[in-house]
Design a protein around this nucleic acid. Structure first.
Length: 479
DNA sequence: AAAAAAT
């Protein structure tokens, strides 16, 4: 027996079970339906605290079972003050769960519905991009738990199809993301609609000063629950980097997918157009792919996600709409086609894999221009990511796509490309360079951290952003 | 820089 095994046995506390929390048999039955018997660490920590009615500031990594961590005790609390009346008027909204994206709202709602299925409590989801009528019908019939994105929720409040006057529990999921997305004014409006006396739970994967300010503004004497170190990446996810020229990225993705025989992978692009293009490129290469981003209709988004979960498509090419919270069972691999502009998004993106203790791979492409982004990411996750060579990758360069040899340097007559200008292919800043024949040049092994740090420390380039959030929280509310 | 979210 290894030392670590021995140590873990000696340290092992008697395993906590869901039955130990005094949860209703109806909830336990729902958990049993799904084969859940033992809580994850965050669940074990959060459930008793939420049951006590305390406010919570949760620093929870994705994939830790956060949703059940707050849903189960909320359902229990609502049950303890159950109302047996069948009248819709007797079913006021008592718990409100806010999420930044529609897909996340839908997913959380699925979970809440599953956990409460044997109880008399009703839950419904409310988000934009889809017909309001079914949501209105569900709300009119009466629900105790609403899961929503902020905009459509406020829309319903305005339409008087939803009243938050009796809501006792507020959950803000992915609060950092909601701030990033400019939801602060909406959040403040929503909070103003709620009774002053209520329980607040706020979850955030990362902790910026803005998040702390938001927390201080509405949490009452909160208990802080921290499971994984904040801003940490799961250590069961293997992270690697491949340096690729910008023009070769799409081929590199196709190569990696084929080379590794990937059958289920999310590829993140920084732009909606980039995501669509890459998806089409992969399809041309015979890889079943779909794109998901904010310019797609909600129906297309849901269809793509479903097809990916079902395995009908192998690759989901996504913008950061899919970066946070989405739970795809046993997703083995995430690829960054672009490095995210925001280092925190890197943590979230790769958090789609390695969930629930499974192992996962996170592969990122980077170019010369990404030095700064890479430095930010490695600073945030507090370690360096292995630079690997993309083996056996010789990008396909069909003659029409491969830029012609540039003869101008040798004094020969200008190439057609030069004659006609660069309109058709866009500006090319470099002379033709047989980059794909160059040997791999690893980053200087101590150097990359040092040189990157040097870049990060340049006084002029460190961002001194004065945030709107601070202004909104501190000063006069805008609009 | 970009993306997301009510219409």
């Amino acid at each position: 027996m290894s030392d670590t095994q021995l140590a873990s046995m000696q340290n092992a506390a008697p395993a906590v079970r869901f039955e130990d929390f005094g949860l209703s048999p109806d909830i336990l039955r729902a958990l049993a339906d799904q084969g859940y018997t033992h809580p994850t660490p965050i669940q074990a920590e959060a459930i008793p605290i939420v049951l006590q009615g305390r406010d919570v500031m949760g620093a929870a990594q994705t994939g830790t079972g956060k949703t059940a961590g707050f849903s189960l005790p909320i359902i229990q609390s609502l049950l303890e003050h159950a109302n047996t009346s069948a009248s819709p008027a007797r079913h006021p909204v008592r718990a409100l769960i806010l999420t930044p994206t529609r897909e996340l709202a839908d997913q959380v709602a699925d979970n809440v519905k599953a956990y409460s299925r044997h109880t008399p409590l009703r839950a419904t989801v409310v988000f934009g991009g889809v017909d309001m009528a079914p949501q209105t019908a569900a709300l009119r019939a009466g629900v105790e738990i609403v899961i929503a994105t902020p905009g459509r929720l406020l829309d319903h409040v305005q339409q008087k199809t939803l009243n938050l006057g009796q809501t006792q529990i507020l959950v803000m999921d992915e609060a950092d993301r909601m701030l990033d997305m400019g939801f602060l004014p909406d959040l403040q409006r929503i909070i103003n609609l709620l009774p002053k006396q209520r329980q607040n739970l706020m979850f955030s994967a990362t902790f910026s000063p803005d998040i702390k300010k938001l927390a201080a503004s509405f949490l009452q004497n909160p208990v802080t629950i921290e499971v994984a170190r904040s801003n940490a990446t799961a250590d069961n996810v293997t992270q690697v980097l491949y340096k690729v020229e910008e023009e070769a990225k799409r081929d590199a993705i196709a190569h990696i997918i084929r080379d590794r025989g990937l059958k289920q992978v999310i590829v993140f692009s920084n732009t909606k157009i980039g995501a669509s293009r890459l998806s089409r490129h992969l399809e041309k290469e015979g890889v079943k792919a779909s794109a998901i981003h904010g310019d797609k209709t909600q129906a297309e988004r849901m269809a793509a996600l479903e097809a990916f979960k079902q395995g009908t498509i192998e690759v989901l090419v996504a913008t950061d709409v899919a970066a946070r919270g989405l739970d795809i069972a046993e997703l083995p691999c995430v690829i960054n086609f672009d490095l995210p502009y925001n280092a925190e998004d890197y943590v979230h993106r790769i958090g789609r894999t390695g969930r629930a203790g499974a192992s996962g791979d996170a592969i990122s492409l980077y170019t010369d221009k990404d030095t700064r982004l890479l430095a930010d990411i490695e600073k945030l996750i507090k370690h360096n990511i292995a630079r690997l060579q993309l083996s056996g990758f010789v990008p396909q360069r069909s003659s029409e796509r491969r830029p012609r040899r540039d003869d101008s340097e040798s004094g020969a007559s200008p190439s057609r490309g030069a004659q006609y200008g660069r309109s058709a292919y866009g500006p090319r800043k470099e002379k033709v360079d047989p980059w794909f024949l160059k040997p791999y040049e690893p980053e200087p092994s101590t150097g990359h951290a040092e040189s990157d740090t040097a870049v990060a420390n340049k006084p002029a380039t460190t961002k001194p952003q004065k945030t709107k959030v601070a202004a909104l929280l501190g000063g006069t509310p805008k609009r």
